[in-house]
Design a binder for these strands. Structure first.
Lengths: 140, 140
DNA sequence: CTCCTTATTGCAGTTACTTGCAATAGAGAA
DNA sequence: TTCTCTATTGCAAGTAACTGCAATAAGGAG
């Protein structure tokens, strides 16, 4: 998964946000580390390039990118949050609590549930990255 | 929602756990406060009766009751965790991020999704209290 | 009732993440 | 290029929740 910084930068600037070297570095790190990344891993990665870059900045940037739908966040049962570049097609995950295996689930698969929520309760689910925890075939 | 301490105590003792006054107090507090309760609220409540009762004990007891399926926990988007007595029939929630409205969703409603997870991926979802965040009819 | 094993507690620190505030620095306007 | 406004950063303190360890006490055995 890669990201087009030009395009993202233009969009953010257009919305009145600023594209700082810190934010670029942090987004690059999420991209390069790949998959589900912890804030700590991102912090360590950017630290190597710019040692003065602060932890708080990493967390704020990551949350900012979440708000802007550029990355998605998942809070794991162990309390840690993992981040991932939001691709062009939103998806969800089945995550094995034992071995960590990770199945990508299309938005499609949740649509029936979300439809029923809307029809029966008038409720619009607004979560674009849900992780369902459980056990995979091997770990059961 | 009420709880039968006798029955729960017997089950826990049978499994080799101990039924301490602290645990009883904490479970009573979850019951009396009702609905979705924060650990902080439980702590303040039990504090009034036994001031020496420690915060760590509250968190450990709450997690213990979760493991034992006596209460359920939900981590909200704001980072706080709310607890609720697990009734006889497991259920999930649609929670409005704007007004906090809370719709109870039967296990039934998620079964088709969980079935597909099992059939297509061999994956067994093991979450008995999921909260889907979004917006209710009025807040959209 | 007393003894004994070990689950649980209280305490104090740690972790993961957030936040207030003054200083810094994007980026549009002149 | 310089000026100006204010979004963002660095720092340090704050919060919710977790944890290691020695002391305590539940509860089964005798």
């Amino acid at each position: 998964m890669s990201h087009n910084m030009e395009e993202i930068a233009a969009r953010l600037r257009g919305a009145g946000y600023r594209v700082t070297p810190q934010r670029q570095l942090i987004l690059d790190a999420v991209c390069e580390l790949g998959g589900h990344v912890t804030a700590e891993a991102v912090y360590e990665s950017v630290q190597e390039i710019v040692p003065s870059l602060n932890q708080g900045t990493v967390y704020r940037a990551l949350n900012f990118f979440c708000d802007e739908r550029i990355v998605t966040a998942t809070r794991q049962p162990d309390g840690r949050t993992v981040y991932e570049l939001a691709g062009q097609n939103p998806h969800h995950h089945f995550v094995c609590q034992v071995c960590g295996a990770d199945y990508e689930v299309s938005q499609q698969m949740l649509r029936p549930l979300f439809e029923r929520a809307r029809q029966e309760y008038g409720f619009a689910v607004e979560m674009d990255h849900i992780s369902f925890f459980g056990r995979c075939r091997e770990c059961r």
